[in-house]
Structures are given as C-alpha cells and as structure tokens.
Write a protein that binds this DNA or RNA. Structure first.
Lengths: 341, 341
DNA sequence: GCGATTTATGGTAGCGCTATCATTATTCTG
DNA sequence: CAGAATAATGATAGCGCTACCATAAATCGC
C-alpha cells in the first residue's frame, strides 16, 4: 500500500515548489531565478521574487547540493585560533568571500596532521567547493584525498614545497635566514634563541633552521638556546629571556619565534632595567600591531597574514576547475627595523 | 523514453549502496553502521566497516541532511575576528564540538545587524542544528527566524535582555559599574574615559553606561572623555591617552573599553615617564594574557570568553529540541587588581 | 512451551532541488 | 520572408541518503 506522501516533511517550511505555484511558474523557472542562472524574463523574475518574499522562502542548500553535487562551502583547516596569525588569515579569507555565495566552514587541527586528516574527511562529506589548509605537510591519506578530489585546494603560509594546487605564503626558511643576516649586519655576534616546543610548528622550525644557516654562513653559532614546553605566550617569553640571560650572560641579541614571545622579552628588559638594542637586541616575527605601539617599536618581520588568506580565497574563486598548472604565490615579508635590535 | 539512469552521477565516488553491496547487507543497515544508530550485530558492523575502509567511502552529508531534514552544522555569527575576544569564544565553541559530529560554520557580521541578518538567512539554508550569535540585539527579521526555526539558539556575551533560547555571558553594565565602584574605593576621583566609536559595540556602550552610573552614585562625573573614530587598537589607545591628558591634565585615572587600548595607555605612560597607579590609574577590560605579562600587570576585568563559547556549545548539545524555558547562564567576571590602578 | 517482547535486518518512498532534454515564442540574417 | 539562431519556459528523472513501516529471528516470563 502506498505510504502517505510527504510523511516526514517540514510542514511549515515553504519549498521551491510553493514559490513556483504562487508565482504561477514551473519549479525549474523558480529555481533559475533563485540561482540567477539562465535567461529569465524580467516580468517572470519579478513574480518569483515577490512570491519568495511573501513566503519567506529560504532555499534548502542540502537539496541543492545533492542535486548538483557541489556546494558553496569552503573548508578551512587552521592549526590554531590562539595564535593571532590564524584569525588574521581567516579574516582575509572571509573578506574575499563576502559578497560571494561561499561560506567558510572552519576546523582547528592543533598543529596535528592526524587531526587535520580526520577533520578533512568529515568536511569532504559536504562536497566543498574548495579546501584551504595550512602548510604543505599532510598525512598520506589526506594528501591522496586532496589530490583526487573535485575541489580546489589552497595550502597557506608556507611555499617551501610542492603544493597540490595553489600555495600562498612566504618562505619561512628565508625569513629566518634574513633575520640572521640582518642582525649580523647590525653588528650582533653573540646570538641566543628563546623558543617554544618546535615539533608541532613546521614554520617556526624552518625559520630557526634559516637563522642557524645565516649564522653559520657568517662564521657564527647560536651561543645559547632555551625552550618552553608547550605553546608560546608573552609570559613564557618573559621568563625565557630571564632564564637564557642567567645561563649565558654575555648574549648581545636574542631571537624569538614570534612577536608574542618577543614582547615578553621586552617586558623582561623593562623589568630588569635592560635597554633593548643598546644592551641587548630583541627580534621577533609577525609584525603585530601591539609590538609597534611599544615605546621602542619591536624589531621584527612583518608576515602578511591577512593578505595570504585573502589572496588564497580570491585565487580559488577564479575557477571551479583545478588548472593543469600548480600556482605558487609568494606574498613575501618586510623586515621592520624597529628600535629593539 | 526513460533517460539513462545515473546520468549526472559522480562515477568514481563510492556511495552507501556500494558499501552495502560489498558488505552484503542492505543500504539501510550500512547507513545504521555509519550513523551508529539502532541495533547492529557485531559481525555485521565489522563487515560494513571493512567495506567502508576498502572503498574509502565518505558519506554525503548533503544527502543525509536532506533525507533527515537536519544537519550537523552549527552556525556561528561573530561580530569580528580582529578583536581577540571572538577567536577566544570560537575556540571555546570548537573545544566543545571536538569529538562530536558537529561542525562550526562561521560568519562575520562586522557589528552590523543587517549583515548579521543576511548571513543568518544564508546559513539557515543548511538547516543547522544550532545558531550561535553575539548579543541579544538583532533585526526584526532575524529575530523572527530565530524564534520560529527548528534549531537551538545561543546568544553570547551579554545577558542583559531577553534571549530567544539560551544566553551565555555576563552583564556588561554591571562590569562597568563595578569598575567605577572599585576605582572610587581605591581613592580615584578625577576620571577620564578613552574609548572608540561606541555606536557599533553594544557591550562597550553598556560598560560605559555602568561606569557613569557608578560615578554618579558616588557623586562624581567623568571629567574628560576622548574617542577615536573606528576600531580599537593599541596605537589608538596610546595616542588617545596622550590627547586626553593634554586636554585634562589633572586626571587621576583613565578607563579604557578594553585591554588593547589600555596597553596603549601603558605604553604612553612608559614613553612619557608617567608611573601607572602612583601618578595615573589605568584600567582595561578583558584580562588578556599580554597585559598580565607587563612589568606592572594591567588592572582590568577578566571576561571569560573561552568559557562562554564552550558553555554555550555544550548547552546546545544537551538537547536538539528547544526547551520550554529559556536559559540564562552568567559566566561572571573577575576584577584583576593588577598594578596599574 | 507459547504468546510477548526484544534484537536485527530489509523494502520502499520520498527529502527539495537541479541537470538534462524538449518545446515554444521571439528575434535575426541575407 | 524562409531558415536559423536565440530567448524563455517546462517535464522528468534522479542526486544519496534516511524515516517509516514491516518482518524474521532470538530471548524471555511464568
């Protein structure tokens, strides 16, 4: 016996068929108006729009997505939200997506490729139009899905490697190298490094490696190195500088993996009566606003986080199809001389 | 004439039917295994899981969502990502959602209820399980949809008002009032306020109003008030403090709408040789880590952003149905005495 | 030991939309 | 003005999954 039609319908929610009936057109015509696709007579469009307004119709994207096997979602996988860098990237992405039909779905991987893989797979269930992730290093499974999927892929932050589709970012190794070169040129010789646990953060590690390479090329070595377990924070930077100076009092410059920690270094200097630059160079990374508002602006490197996010999203929107050629966009960085190194 | 079946299929992507066939069970049984729902014999589950692994099956959530008229998406609408407050909230939400099937979809409203409404409507097209927004003030249309939708709603940050379903946050008016009372108790009498354009930020305005009320109750008034156009920033706070002290040299305390700006005030003090607290009280809001890493920790109020996000998401997960009773959760705040006021 | 529950599985009919093909009215070309 | 292109609309059949109902097998109570 045939079951009652519309058994598990949402009785109150108007569908496209309701709109079409009210406007006196066929379903598909109403659909065309909603999607702004195909030729529609002005009068017809007006009728349909009026019906939509009257019913308060909201399209069902799940149905649309199913029928067209594609969505307007863009999956964004970020390592962290505590680090201001990634909200900045996200802001860039969001800016590029405003006024488009695309919506970002975000996931946080905690710098862990295995978590990244898990979240990626769950995101792929929505048939996203594009996937944005950080870095070029993923699990084999993740990489396989990224390569074979029918969606665009952008890998952000880092460009030292082989992307799946698009990479947007900068060379962190080079930034580290330039930091070392810059500081050597300014006369610093006895280098310290005060960092955080590097295992998780590929890019901090690349900058560290670049720094060491520059020192090596100048015939120098890191005199002292100190690390905190776990994440970076201003307070950690403050304590770390104190610790490293106790162990190696003769340092003339200390490099930090980021501005947050370098700010802590500055605060320790203030507390201990050390004049930055004159007595001890302090160098960060990221170029956060707050560092530039200091009485002595922080010497650091400006990474273009917002630009990276925005560029990546814009690039992805250019074509739904993955082009034959891979694209690598170097957004570069600026050395901010500042007054602390 | 019947059209070719599976005309516009994704030929290469395995479906649940493929899994079921390979496992030798019916579609619906395979579906039950995937969703972990209903009674399944261990042997059957094992067979299905093996088939899933072999095919690399990824469920199609659009189809699932359509069939069950409900999704595992949670819409999150935040005013801004520049202000660290909201990434913190988002982090809390994300933490609560880890290990669940839910995924946050985020939108940024720029503190504009009209943009909020637009994004809300586009999010509702995905039949989200819940909607999270900031504040209790929305457009009439948005409010109507929130009230009549079949999804949970959480309104964050603020609890001074009447929520649709759940509100999680604190009383910003009260926080402003307590700030005033606290500072009056500590002997301050000549108050200045250095803020940003308030129109957009309801909560900063509520704190400001609370502060004035406390001063009034103590028989005092704001002696001076200075505002920047546009958003808040550390540099703006620094310039603003300089400006307000020029206009009203006799101030003994300046209150800022947030820690970012208050940090700028501190930096101006350092630059101008003013000793915080002794010569001039500085008071912020938010309790950011960086302020507590200062040589003199910032006096401020700790708002519990992470907790707000986490609590809200957890509360929403408790039940898919909107309960008869509205819930208001006050996460409170702590006054951090600090050393600057 | 026999009806009553519980456990495990399956058949079928949509969910609301859009791709595809088909059709009719309208405009254009030489 | 015939033939061809273009503009505007429609009928139909799924997209891949799950709600709903039905059935069969295993366990239970007394």
């Amino acid at each position: 016996m045939p079951r009652k039609r519309n058994a598990h319908r949402n009785a109150d929610t108007p569908t496209l068929a309701d709109v079409a009936r009210l406007a006196g057109v066929s379903d598909i015509t109403a659909s065309r108006v909603v999607r702004n696709k195909g030729p529609i007579a002005d009068a017809t469009r007006a009728k349909v729009l009026a019906a939509i307004a009257e019913l308060g119709y909201i399209p069902n994207r799940a149905a649309g997505s199913l029928a067209s096997s594609g969505s307007t979602l863009m999956s964004v996988l970020l390592p962290s939200l505590s680090n201001i860098v990634f909200p900045d990237v996200l802001r860039g992405i969001h800016t590029a997506l405003t006024e488009t039909a695309f919506q970002p779905v975000i996931g946080v991987t905690d710098y862990d490729p295995v978590i990244e893989e898990r979240i990626l797979l769950s995101f792929l269930a929505w048939q996203p139009a594009a996937v944005i992730l950080a870095g070029l290093h993923h699990t084999a499974t993740a990489r396989r899905h990224l390569e074979h999927g029918r969606f665009r892929v952008a890998e952000l932050m880092d460009i030292d490697g082989d992307p799946v589709d698009i990479a947007v970012g900068m060379s962190h190794w080079q930034a580290g190298y330039d930091t070392g070169k810059h500081l050597v040129q300014r006369g610093y010789r006895r280098f310290g490094y005060a960092g955080h646990s590097i295992a998780s953060d590929d890019r901090a590690r690349a900058r560290y490696d670049g720094l060491r390479a520059a020192l090596k090329d100048a015939g120098l070595l890191l005199v002292a190195e100190e690390r905190v377990q776990g994440g970076s924070s201003t307070m950690a930077g403050r304590h770390l500088l104190e610790a490293i100076l106790r162990k190696a009092p003769g340092l003339d410059v200390v490099v930090f993996p980021n501005d947050d920690m370098a700010m802590g270094g500055i605060f320790h200097c203030m507390h201990a009566g050390i004049t930055p630059k004159e007595q001890l160079g302090i160098f960060g990374f990221n170029g956060l606003d707050i560092g530039q508002a200091l009485p002595l602006p922080l010497s650091t490197i400006l990474s273009k986080r917002f630009l990276i996010g925005k560029t990546a999203a814009e690039k992805l929107l250019e074509s739904r199809e993955r082009p034959a050629e891979k694209t690598i966009i170097n957004t570069g960085y600026d050395i901010i001389e500042g007054a602390t190194a």
